[in-house]
Simulated scan of single mutants.
Amino acid sequence: MLIQEGDKRTPATDLMLASILAFVAGGVNSAGFLAYHYFSANMTGNVSMTSDHLAVSQLDLALGFLTIVAMFIFGAFTASILIEIGKRQRRSNIYALTLIVEAVLLILVGLAVALSAQPLNGVLVVGLLSLTMGIQNAASTRISGSRVRTTHVSGVATDLGVGLAMLLGVSSGADRLAIVPRLKLHLVTIVFFALGGVLGVIGHQLLGGVSFCVFAIPLIILSVRYLR
């Protein structure tokens, strides 16, 4: 699942990867929002909030949202650098290593939140969570040839609507066979992102910052088999 790239991948491996990573993204996003009222995976909303606060001269709030966006971009940049280095060194497990980096960061953030005697700065915490989401989204995008985008729900929802319209417009069985797997992938991504969001809220209510550590577990389980 974390070795083959692009067209070498099967729809089944893309489906499994999308379900696991979207679940993690939805959980981290919702838990972070419940705790700090910032989204770590919703860059569309964060850019919009930056514009809104700039328009009314609330520069401190605008800077907070802009920082979260910048951290997401930095996460994607970091993941791409790691992947490029891994490819040059011919490491077939570079995607697994990249997701392990994400998992470690989630665990560190979760422990910092759980063990801190004082409430941590919300922009700092969500910014670090956004960093992990940027890492994840870049890794899933690159390994799948842009088919799997686990944090970009607005784009996935758009693709789902477009795909449904195309499905209604085609008549040949071959065309339908080409469209249906993509629709399944988009639908699974949205469903598991939402499911992760529900469990993220419940998990944070029960466990607090430890919930971020819990959402690192699927990443570790997914990646550890490729580390040898």
Rank of each mutant, 00 (worst) to 15 (best):
G75P: 02
A76S: 02
T78I: 02
I81F: 05
G86V: 09
G86F: 07
R88I: 15
R91I: 03
R91M: 03
I94K: 10
I94P: 11
Y95C: 14
Y95A: 14
T98E: 06
L99D: 03
V101K: 08
E102W: 03
A103F: 06
A103C: 04
V104T: 07
L105G: 02
L105N: 03
L108Q: 00
L108V: 01
L108Y: 02
G110D: 07
G110Y: 10
G110W: 06
V113P: 01
V113W: 04
A114S: 14
A114T: 14
S116P: 11
S116K: 12
S116M: 13
S116Q: 12
A117P: 10
A117V: 12
Q118E: 11
Q118S: 15
Q118F: 13
L120F: 07
L120G: 09
N121S: 14
V123Q: 09
L124D: 03
V125S: 09
L128S: 04
L129Q: 05
L131G: 00
T132P: 02
I135V: 09
Q136V: 06
N137M: 07
N137K: 10
A138N: 00
A139M: 09
A139S: 07
S140Q: 06
S140Y: 08
I143K: 06
S144K: 01
G145R: 10
S146V: 15
S146T: 14
R147L: 03
V148T: 07
T151W: 12
V153Y: 09
V156Y: 01
A157E: 04
T158I: 13
T158Y: 08
T158H: 15
L160I: 11
G161I: 12
G161C: 13
V162C: 09
V162I: 12
L168H: 11
S171W: 11
G173A: 12
G173R: 09
A174Y: 10
R176K: 15
L177D: 12
L177P: 15
V180Y: 02
V180I: 05
P181D: 05
R182C: 03
R182T: 04
R182M: 04
R182I: 01
K184D: 04
L185W: 01
H186C: 01
L187P: 08
